[in-house]
């Protein structure tokens, strides 16, 4: 027993780092293909987007940066796939400075997919537009409720929003069927819920990083938030729903789904490490080495 405990005690930080590395890398090459059962909070977003009539406008707010890209980007891509397939008109805004770059990257990826699968061009100005970054956070959301084009005046190339076919008729935030926010912090989904849902009664949904999810869940339970994608799992859930309805997308990169395998193993690994640490702790406590 003592040899076993001594062996466990000899586990140092470097060993944990090496195990973590392999726990992430190996499942990428040898996937487990475990079935993903989407959560209800993600299904509700899918149902809502599915029910919006073709040609309607939706607003997407890219409120994240490259640091949280691994979690937020896959869910944004999955939503965009669904929305473009449904022929919805997408107006993209950014409350974070790098949001526009994130949106451009996501749409460039999808342009190739739609061309290959459906021979369809996703056209800037007709199918989507990306409005430029402005500082202000919650104040911008508040103002967009009263005067959208007056708040987000130009797109990322400096073209006036009132001259873009997609945005020229938009007067207030109420002209959108749905607001989706991909949020890694503040300003983000919380502000959208507190202002747009509460004051203007426009449904709000979106995705957040896993670490923010517990903070946002109360808004989901109160019905103020239509749906929530939490972390990479949320993205994987949405990808599963999209791929089930539109199978051609299966062959393209589904980062959420492929990210589930490393996450499965790493979660298990962390649990095993915690159990080992507690075995050592209980042994030391029994021996009177710790209080």
């Amino acid at each position: 027993m003592n040899i076993f405990i001594r062996l466990l005690k000899s586990i140092d930080r470097k060993f944990i780092f090496i195990i973590t590395f392999f726990a992430v890398v190996i499942p990428m090459f040898y996937p487990l293909y475990l079935p993903i059962i989407p959560e209800d909070s993600v299904r509700s977003i899918f149902k809502k987007i599915d029910a919006i009539p073709e040609g309607s406008k939706i607003l997407m707010s890219f409120d994240y940066d490259p640091a949280s890209k691994p979690e937020c980007h896959p869910m944004a891509i999955a939503n965009l796939r669904h929305a473009f397939k449904k022929n919805l008109k997408i107006v993209i805004i950014q409350l974070w400075p790098f949001g526009g770059a994130m949106a451009t990257e996501a749409i460039d990826e999808l342009k190739k997919e739609f061309k290959e699968i459906y021979n369809r061009d996703i056209i800037y100005g007709d199918d989507y537009c990306i409005l430029g970054y402005k500082v202000g956070g919650a104040i911008l959301i508040q103002q967009s409720g009263k005067d959208f084009n007056g708040t987000f005046m130009e797109d990322i190339d400096g073209k006036k929003a009132s001259e873009i076919s997609l945005t020229k008729d938009v007067k207030t935030i109420k002209d959108f069927e749905l607001v989706l926010s991909y949020s890694a912090g503040d300003p983000g989904i919380k502000q959208w819920v507190m202002i747009v849902d509460a004051q203007y009664k426009v449904p709000v949904a979106g995705g957040v990083t896993a670490v923010t999810a517990p903070e946002i869940t109360p808004y989901l339970n109160s019905g103020q938030l239509l749906g929530l994608m939490a972390g990479l799992r949320g993205a994987a859930d949405y990808e599963t729903l999209v791929n089930k309805k539109y199978p051609p997308f299966k062959k393209y990169v589904n980062s959420g789904t492929s990210g589930m395998d490393p996450q499965n193993i790493v979660h298990l690994m962390i649990i095993i490490f915690i159990i080992i640490a507690n075995i050592i702790y209980w042994h030391d406590k029994k021996m009177g080495l710790v209080r």
Binding site: I16, F17, V24, P70, A101, I270, I274, A277, Y281
Partner: peptide
């Protein structure tokens, strides 16, 4: 942005996995 910020930010975020694993082992006691 494309060649520095994006990769540096992603790297910082990725390192979290290693630190969380290590911190959980060293600090999470019942």
């Amino acid at each position: 942005y494309k060649n520095l910020i994006e990769h540096l930010s992603s790297t910082m975020f990725s390192l979290l996995a290693f630190f969380i694993a290590s911190a959980a082992f060293r600090a999470f006691r019942a």
